[in-house]
């Protein structure tokens, strides 16, 4: 399953949308830094997010709608960190806000139906290279904060309070494995959710197109129901875009809480 398949006529490859295409081939110090469609959408996400937050910087006493929207997002992240970490959570607001909004905007921008005007949105959160880097960032923050604050006492994270002496070793092993799995589960959850949604939409849209092309009968039996289902799935995908960004930010804040307070 690769880009070659899509080259064959009259076949829709639902995976083709995830293909990375270089727009400019660059190299720096032996590292390939080609500016790809993926990088382009990261840039668009950054710019849109920048403009969005910029609109909320009017600092008016009585906020307008835009300022209100931006403030409700910062307030949302602030409340989440306050609830999960406490007062120390405040200093993580910039990171978690950036993380949440970056993923949210990437997910939502990737869903935009810009294909009708010839621009094909690329959802870079459907690539585990990207989600993996974000997950590793969160995980490294947890490690750095944990060891910075508690030193070697951070390892007591793996031994919950009240563990019987005999159980310390197996419990610590299990806790350690579940701890080490965190970045993978973070990265895979987002990547799989985004990819699955996009594949589903692509498959359904191929049903709509192929069914309609096969004549009014198949168009009515397959095309129309698929189209109606697609509308529902589109709404669901918008929901998933928000939920996955939320889950990523929420789990990050929970992991940071572990690092801040151990157990």
């Amino acid at each position: 399953m690769s880009a070659d398949v899509a080259a064959e006529p009259a076949k829709v490859d639902p995976m083709y949308q995830f293909t990375i295409k270089p727009l400019a081939e660059w190299e720096m110090a032996g590292i390939d830094i080609s500016f790809t469609n993926s990088a382009a959408w990261m840039m668009i996400t950054t710019i849109v997010l920048f403009l969005f937050v910029l609109g909320g910087m009017k600092r008016e006493l009585v906020p307008g709608r835009w300022q209100m929207a931006v403030e409700s997002f910062t307030g949302f992240i602030d409340d989440m960190l306050e609830a999960n970490i406490g007062k120390e959570g405040r200093k993580y607001v910039p990171y978690v806000f950036s993380l949440f909004m970056f993923i949210l905007f990437a997910n939502l921008l990737g869903l935009l139906p810009l294909g009708v005007v010839g621009i094909h949105p690329f959802t870079f959160t459907s690539h585990f290279t990207v989600t993996g880097v974000l997950a590793l960032l969160s995980f490294s923050i947890v490690l750095v904060v944990g060891f910075w604050k508690h030193g070697f006492k951070f390892f007591t994270l793996f031994v919950p309070h009240g563990t019987p002496v005999a159980m310390i070793v197996p419990i610590a092993l299990i806790e350690f494995i579940s701890f080490m799995i965190r970045p993978f589960s973070l990265a895979l959850r987002l990547f799989v959710a985004m990819m699955a949604g996009h594949v589903l939409l692509e498959v359904l849209s191929s049903f709509v197109i192929d069914g309609t092309n096969a004549g009014p009968l198949w168009g009515g039996v397959v095309g129309l129901p698929s189209f109606l289902l697609m509308i529902g799935i589109c709404a669901l995908e918008i929901l998933v875009a928000g939920i996955q960004a939320y889950v990523f930010a929420l789990l990050t804040s929970l992991y940071i809480n572990d690092a801040e307070h151990l157990h």
Partner: peptide, 27 residues
């Protein structure tokens, strides 16, 4: 390589400009 590079560039921009620069002002 390019994925990681550009992600770090743009997420870094987001973090330092938006997260560190603008969010505290909004809050």
């Amino acid at each position: 390589q390019s994925q990681i590079f550009w992600l770090l560039v743009f997420f870094g921009l987001t973090f330092f400009v938006v997260g560190r620069g603008m969010v505290p002002k909004v809050m």
